[in-house]
């Protein structure tokens, strides 16, 4: 067991024992290798189920809404930023949250790991910076750093921005000379090639909305895609409807997305929907100097007006 998991269990157990919180939201080992899933722990016996490793790719900020009592939640860097966004957007009360911050060293890209094997992976065991993975026919040891998810490899906020307890020591943040290489690459294409890129990207989308459900930003009681009167967007596989869904979905996240990667993690068709949202993150940063979820006292750019807002696009 890693020290981080041990600390999380100790903290969770103390909180539950003292009845400071009603439940602890964290990660538990999933039923298949490399798939940790969210868990709500309400009793001390179940604290042993909590884990933290590099397969905890979902975002727990998604589960902190609509609780009556006080809850504790495990938060890696991006989860903490989404908790800040929840507080700003009045979806969660900071007073009713006990945040167990976990400085994160990145989540592994399950597809990249799976591509090393021809058959199914049956075991994934981590040991510090390396991981040993087994299938029925072979065994591989990898350096986790080389198999990070794309968003984790570009992460500059691995330490939680707010927390009440810290489960392990903070790590050093990286600073990037080129923070958005993927966006720049798409931007350098001409209009038709850009269009082609996104058509290729979304062509397998089955409109399952897992990306939307995994994302802590999407909490509207009725999403625009589910609305029937008026029906904003067709519900089938028509490519224009698929494009419209992705375009609007992304725009609803403008200035709010923390690039946590939960959307991509959840997509059963391995679609990198971050290609849309990252453009908006880049714009938020370049136009408004804004990165989402860093400060509970500032309103997001599309939610506030300032005379300095860029407005040369209006003629």
């Amino acid at each position: 067991m890693n020290t981080c998991t041990k600390r999380i269990r100790e903290i969770a157990s103390a909180l539950l024992e003292k009845k400071e919180v009603e439940k602890v939201i964290g990660f538990a080992t999933g039923t298949i290798p490399m798939a940790s899933n969210p868990i709500v722990v309400t009793s001390k016996q179940d604290v042993e189920k909590l884990v933290f490793n590099s397969t905890c790719g979902l975002n727990l900020a998604n589960y902190i809404r609509n609780h009556k009592g006080k809850i504790a939640v495990i938060a890696k860097g991006c989860d903490a930023r989404n908790i800040v966004t929840h507080v700003i957007e009045n979806q969660a009360d900071r007073e009713k949250l006990h945040i167990i911050g976990v400085p994160c060293s990145g989540m592994i890209d399950k597809n990249k790991v799976a591509s090393l094997f021809k058959d199914d992976i049956v075991e994934f065991i981590e040991d510090g910076d390396t991981a040993t993975i087994k299938s029925a026919t072979k065994e591989e040891t990898i350096n986790k750093k080389d198999y990070l998810r794309h968003n984790c490899s570009l992460c500059t906020h691995k330490n939680p921005v707010i927390y009440d307890d810290l489960a392990c020591d903070e790590g050093e943040e990286q600073s990037l000379e080129i923070p958005y290489p993927d966006v720049d690459a798409i931007q350098s294409l001409d209009a038709n090639a850009k269009w082609q890129h996104f058509q290729e990207l979304t062509k397998n989308c089955i409109r399952c909305y897992s990306c939307r459900n995994a994302r802590p930003l999407c909490y509207c009681p009725t999403c625009f895609v589910d609305e029937a009167g008026p029906q904003w967007v067709g519900k089938g596989q028509d490519e224009t409807d698929v494009n419209t869904f992705h375009f609007l979905r992304a725009f609803h996240c403008a200035g709010r997305c923390t690039d946590c990667g939960a959307c991509v993690e959840a997509c059963p068709m391995d679609i990198n929907v971050r290609d849309f949202t990252r453009k908006l993150n880049k714009d938020s940063f370049e136009l408004f100097g804004w990165e989402a979820g860093l400060d509970t006292t500032r309103r997001p750019p599309l939610d506030s007006y300032s005379p300095d807002d860029p407005n040369d696009f209006i003629k």
């Binding site: 798409i186 209009a191 090639a193 850009k194 269009w195 375009f247 849309f276």
Partner: peptide, 15 residues
């Protein structure tokens, strides 16, 4: 900007 990023020419959308 996002429309342009997706390949809809900037000159089609005016504000």
């Amino acid at each position: 900007n996002l429309l342009e990023h997706m390949g809809i020419e900037r000159d089609r959308v005016h504000f």
